[in-house]
């Protein structure tokens, strides 16, 4: 599904990704771990198409198409979803209005008619309940006055509504209490299917107790330096990053 080859990217003239390779097949869940500053968030932002980041080498293909050549919105319309680490507020624009606009933009791209209003409401209500938020959140401004945990749940709600092919979770677990973490995990697990893939960027092993990954990768200095199965996460939890030759303090 996703094939990343020798990806290099910088932000504000600082080189962050230095030749990253990754293959993600449909049906797989990959966890990307690594110390602060290793390039985890940069990877998610670059895949989603944040123009603040400059790609200066390598290639990325999504189902055989050149992902880097697509506009940010087209990537989303082709099924790439990013759950943000710090979701921003859009005051006055209700969650409903926002999601309806998003869904209809995506449907238009696929040559489909606009979503039927009743069908949309049903979908929205179902998904907001799935992430354990009160339906009143649908009418509130996007993330407007939401707590940290509510924002993250709202991201998962959006993901469930859009049913992306490739979901990228950028430290979605950070700052969550155990209940919220469970809700997020349930959401992601509900989305797992043979034709979808998930990339989870995380700092902690904790999330992986709830969403069991097929592969775990360690990112350091802008490259993947070690890959393994789910047991690699446990090993990292126990031993830290030092045994891999990474000086964590220097990176922090």
């Amino acid at each position: 599904m996703l094939s990343i080859s020798n990806l290099q990217a910088s932000v504000e003239d600082k080189q962050i990704l230095t030749g990253l390779n990754l293959e993600v097949k449909a049906g797989e869940v990959h966890a990307i771990m690594g110390p602060n500053g290793s390039g985890k968030s940069t990877l998610s932002q670059v895949l989603a198409g944040n123009e603040a980041y400059e790609v200066n080498g390598g290639s990325v293909s999504l189902e055989g198409n050149d992902l880097l050549d697509m506009s940010t919105e087209d990537r989303a319309r082709e099924g790439v979803f990013l759950a943000f680490q710090y979701p921003v507020e859009i005051p006055g624009v209700s969650n409903l209005q926002f999601m309806k606009t998003a869904i209809n933009n995506i449907r238009q791209h696929r040559g489909q008619d606009e979503i039927n209003a009743a069908e949309f409401m049903k979908l929205a209500k179902q998904k907001i309940q799935q992430v354990n938020l009160d339906p009143s959140f649908l009418k509130r401004g996007v993330n407007e006055g939401f707590s940290g945990g509510e924002k993250k749940r709202n991201e998962i709600m959006q993901m469930l509504m859009l049913e992306p092919k490739l979901a990228i979770l950028d430290e979605t677990d950070s700052g969550l209490d155990i209940d919220a973490l469970r809700v997020v995990a349930d959401g992601v697990n509900a989305l797992r299917s043979p034709d979808r893939a998930v990339i989870m960027v995380t700092h902690y092993q904790r999330l992986l107790d709830y969403i069991v990954p097929d592969y775990v990768h360690v990112l350091a200095n802008g490259k993947i330096i070690k890959s393994g199965g789910k047991e690699l996460a446990l090993e990292l939890e126990e031993r830290g990053y030092g045994w891999l030759g990474i000086d964590e303090k220097a990176k922090a």
Partner: peptide, 15 residues
């Protein structure tokens, strides 16, 4: 903000 625009675009909404 650029962040607001990026969020919208990432959800498939054009600028």
């Amino acid at each position: 903000s650029d962040d607001q625009l990026f969020l919208c675009q990432q959800r498939g909404i054009d600028t």
